[in-house]
Design a binder for these strands. Structure first.
Lengths: 232, 232
DNA sequence: AATATAGTGTGTGAAAATTACACCATTAAA
DNA sequence: TTTAATGGTGTAATTTTCACACACTATATT
């Protein structure tokens, strides 16, 4: 069997990341300020070029780390953008990933490479124009997680380990952009059976402290073992 | 502003297509027999390399056409596969698309290029080993359409324009691999309000002929206008 | 000590959706 | 006319969804 060479093109893959966080009752995403042409000084999603000897999943982790200092999140690919002219300097196809993380105790965001001047959280409402087609990438990703919220326990990745039902509800409201009924929401969430009520209560509030809950992954997996694998 | 060059890699994008059809009560996909190394003579999903000056959506259409003679289907991207060693000859990242089409009156399948020796329909059960990681790509795609079946009217793309409720049901059963209750299925489908009952009946059967129905896109769009755009 | 404030936590009834389930009707062929 | 094959239909029980309002508790303020 003879070795056949693949054709070569001046084409480049990149990764872009839509990282959601939840803070002060607001849904936010992670942006960087670019320090490199093109779109120097613009705001953009954290994203960069995939190396030749790394898988795209690995690349996503590395790139996010280099641009923001964040590590070990569970990112998932959600769409690939391949218009010819989406990058002004050549053909770049980008695979977009999302993740949801706890902003809370997060250490400072600090870019490792010089390609980003800084990284910071920005509310998803009132987003400014972003570099490249990043606004479109963000919108597609946001719609994806809205959908996924219905059949995947992604909300818990955004909350601290211990949370109140009110926090959980206001997160759902932020993602879905609509008000939910408190009694029905609580009834339904609790009926799933994967929330573990703790003995602790909220602290430091100047009103009746709410009970804290925890998301119980093991119970979730038991209850929904069917659905978990379908998801890729 | 100075022109900055993008780095160059020996990396290649490709497209692979998972095309579903429905025939004789069975769900099938389109395979080709490869006529080129690597995996010469193997069965594979229709797939090839993206040119530098075409978008990935355009590439998907072109490639499918060249390998199978099929045209103008509505393909949708569903996942991108980017493991380093998925192609034995170098770095190839592939974007996978699916489509669902009517096999029925389809003209002969005939590859245009020589890269495929032939193209043919194969039942999704009892699939043989496929070239590259195409078995995994198929599985991922199959799971995607199973999910989508719940919130998108994709089934109708697989049926002839006029179809009976029994045909529709057996298609659902084929995709979901489970039996459904006839009365409940019919009640529910009709309750959506986007099936148009025709005056015609089935012909050429040796038993009571069934009524024919049509999928009414306009009604569907009116009823579900919300959901249509979220889908990318 | 009284009171204002802000969010917690709880139940019920009506309506809608889902599920389980079995038999007669119609057609063509034998 | 009988047989074989599929078409077509309704109801009752159960579960899920939805709409809706007020008393409780902890703290801060006076």
């Amino acid at each position: 069997m003879e070795e056949v060479k693949l054709p070569k093109f001046d084409s480049v893959f990149s990764i872009d990341c839509v990282i959601f966080g939840f803070e002060a009752g607001e849904l936010k995403i992670l942006l960087i300020e670019r320090n490199e042409e093109p779109f120097k000084d613009w705001l953009a999603l954290p994203g960069y070029i995939v190396e030749q000897d790394e898988s795209i999943d690995d690349a996503a982790e590395r790139i996010l780390y280099e641009l923001t200092g964040l590590r070990d999140l569970h990112m998932q690919q959600f769409h690939t953008f391949g218009e010819v002219n989406r990058h002004p300097q050549g053909r770049v196809i980008t695979v977009a990933y999302y993740a949801l993380i706890r902003i809370n105790g997060q250490k400072e965001l600090r870019p490792i490479t010089q390609f980003a001047r800084k990284a910071f959280w920005h509310p998803v409402n009132e987003l400014p124009k972003l570099a490249f087609d990043h606004s479109e990438i963000f919108n597609t990703g946001f719609n994806k997680i809205r959908r996924r919220l219905n059949y995947q326990p992604i909300a818990f990745e955004l909350l601290p380990e211990k949370f109140t039902l009110t926090q959980l509800q206001s997160l759902y409201e932020a993602i879905l952009s609509k008000k939910l009924d408190k009694r029905n929401f609580r009834k339904k969430m609790l009926s799933f059976g994967f929330l573990k009520e703790l003995d602790e209560k909220q602290k430091g509030v100047s009103y009746r402290a709410a009970k804290l809950y925890k998301f119980d992954r093991r119970k979730y997996a038991k209850i929904f073992h069917n659905d978990m694998n379908l998801d890729k």
